[in-house]
Every structure is written in structure tokens, then in C-alpha cells.
Design a protein around this nucleic acid. Sequence first.
DNA 1: AAAGCGGGGAG
DNA 2: CTCCCAGCTTT
Length: 398
Amino acid sequence: MTILSDENSVVKNDEKDNEENEKRAALSSALLSWYDQFGRDLPWRVRGAHPSPYTVWISEIMLQQTTVKTVIPYFYRFLEKFPDIETLANADIEDVLLMWQGLGYYTRARKLHECAQYLVKNHGGKFPETYSELLKLPGIGPYTAASISSLAFDKREAVVDGNVIRVISRLYGIQESTAISLPDVTKKAQNLMSDTRAADYTSAIMDLGATVCTPKNPVCNSCPFETDCAALSLHLIEEIPKIEKLQKINKIGKLFWIENESKEVLIRKRSEKGLLHGLTEFPWEAVEGDRSKLREIPFPIENTDWIETGKSVRHVFTHINLTLEIYQTKINSMKNESDLMNLKKSGGQFVSKKDFENYPFSTLMKKVIREADSDDQKVSKNGKKSKKIVSKTLSQFE
DNA sequence: AAAGCGGGGAG
DNA sequence: CTCCCAGCTTT
């Protein structure tokens, strides 16, 4: 190679870099113009100003794996009850869970509480501004660290979530046969980010993914990237990004609705580990597979009739399809004295129905309450009521 | 790197 | 029904 050609090569690369930079700047500018005109107005968003990090934080945590529409009422209620970091830090975790009930992924609420206490203890009750400091906080991962840093503090930190992965992988025509490379997407998203309007860029790319570059039926003729989108020109919009789907398992189980003579119902607290940990529930047991694997009545109470109500509740988790058949019984303090003692010893307690509102139930248990608490019995196909007594003695217990 | 973790609404 | 939404933590 001659010196001349080396110089040419360098010049060529510079020109190429300049072209790339201009291209990115043009895309970024187009995105921001689109946002100025079509961006959404959201409760946690302040046009022309930056929301507080607390506001951003609460909304971002709530929005994880759920939808804007679902979050909005929770957001208002939560901020009214816990208006700032210190109030949240001093709150009882049970009250935080109560505000969270029905929103799912309850670890988020626990980490929220934990993080507030951490901030009070270690950061003077204020949020740090940098990505790396934010990343150290409980419950805050790469996405939320970037979102707080950019939205509240206008730092140039690119968020990467499902929306961004979709927009970026389509724009650049990333069509991996396996999983999308997160570092690759992050780098491209970071490059695309505006130098001057970091916060607005974050809002803009999220809005684009949510309203235009949607998973199904994207509105490409309204997209600021229409003429630049690789996936669109390749006719691969519906194929990108490629998502692998996971296998679901079916579970069947029984749930036991036990009332005492005061019409109070037995509840208990779930263990602190695993699914729905720490939430309130009625006793239930489920197994994988079909109902032949179920134990008759795994809940040992003497001298009582268990009633198969014919009612059942079906609930779908991310990775489990669950069906619970509801069994009922009534016990009283005279006939079931030792049972009552055992139930209390194992963590059960009787609570009146109107006090249910003071306990954090999952949506699954709320379904149970709606079903079990209705007086009408389910009528089976042959017109007969399916309610029947299924067990009378302890001999059928294990 | 993979699995676990909720709930809801759109199509 | 299926898909997937402003992800994080644990193993």
C-alpha cells in the first residue's frame, strides 16, 4: 500500500463517519419533530419541563411489563398516598402493597419501598443523577436507570425496552435468527439519541414504539423513519423483531373457603418466597397436570362437610394456566375447637368480608372472592345444581 | 444465559 | 385462543 492510498482511505473513512453522523442527526431530528406534534400527554410527563425524579421513578416502575392505561389510576392513587420519597420510606410495606394490589409483579412494590428507604439512608433522600449511581439502587435496572437519568435530569442515556428494541431492530433491519443482541440495540439507540434534547428523545422513541411502530399493524405511513426503515423496505415489518415464545404449563387445584359461625372467612399469608409472595390468600393447593393427581381434601378439619360448590376460578400467569375448584365448609367453635387452634397455629386467621379491603389480595384471590361470595350456585349443563357434599370424615384426608 | 415473576387488553 | 406490554432479580 502506498502512502497516498492510505491517506485516501483515511479521508474516505472520515467522509463515511460524517455521513453516518449526519444521517443519525437527521433521524433524531425527524423523531423529535414527530414527537413535538404527536407525542402523548401523560400524567407523569411535563411538556417543556422535566418531571421530578420521584414522578419518573414511580411511573417507570409501574409501567414495567404493563400498559399505560392500566397504570394511570394507580399512579394518581399512589402519589396521593405517598407524595414523596420520605413519605414512602416511612410507610408500612403492607400499605404499599395495598396500593399495588391488582398491578402484579409485587416485587416491584417491595423494591420501591426498599429503594425509598435506601435513598433516605444513603443519599439524603434524593436521587443520584448519573446512570451508574442509579443502577445501584434496589429495583432499578438498566432501563429505569437510563429513564430517570434522561427524563428527570436530561442526561444523554438511551433507554432500551420492548418499544426501543422494536423500533431500532426495524429501522436497521436486524433479523437475527435467535435473540436480538441487546448491546447492539443499545449502541444504535445511544447513537440515535439527540445531543440537545435527551429527555424529549426518550419520550419520543417510547411514544413512537407505542403508537406508530406497534407490534401488529404498525402505521408506517405516519412514521418519521418511513423512508429510512430497513424492515419496511425489505417487507419484513411483521417479522422483525423475532420473538421466541415460551411453553406454558397447566395446573389444577382446589381452594378452600372456610367460614366460622360469625361468617368470617379463613385467610392466610403466603410465604415470603415464590409466586405472589407475602400476599393474602385463601388456602389452596394445585398440581401440574390433570385433576386425577389432586388430593381429595388436603385441608384437615374434623367433623365438617366439605361442599363442592361447582364454582371455579381460572387464572393465567405468564407461564402457568391455573384452574382452582372452590370447596366450602362451615365450622364452629364448639365442634372444631382443636381445628381452630391448628388453623391459627399454621398462620390462618378469620376475617369478616368487609375487612378484606385491608389485606393485599392478588387478582386471582379477588376472582375467588367474587365467585365464592355470590349466593347463586353454578348450574351444570343438565340443569342440576352441581353443589354436593364430597367428604365427611377425616379418613379421606391423607 | 435462563428462569421466575401478574395482570390486562387487543386482535 | 395468542401476543406482549415503559423489566428486574435470582440462579
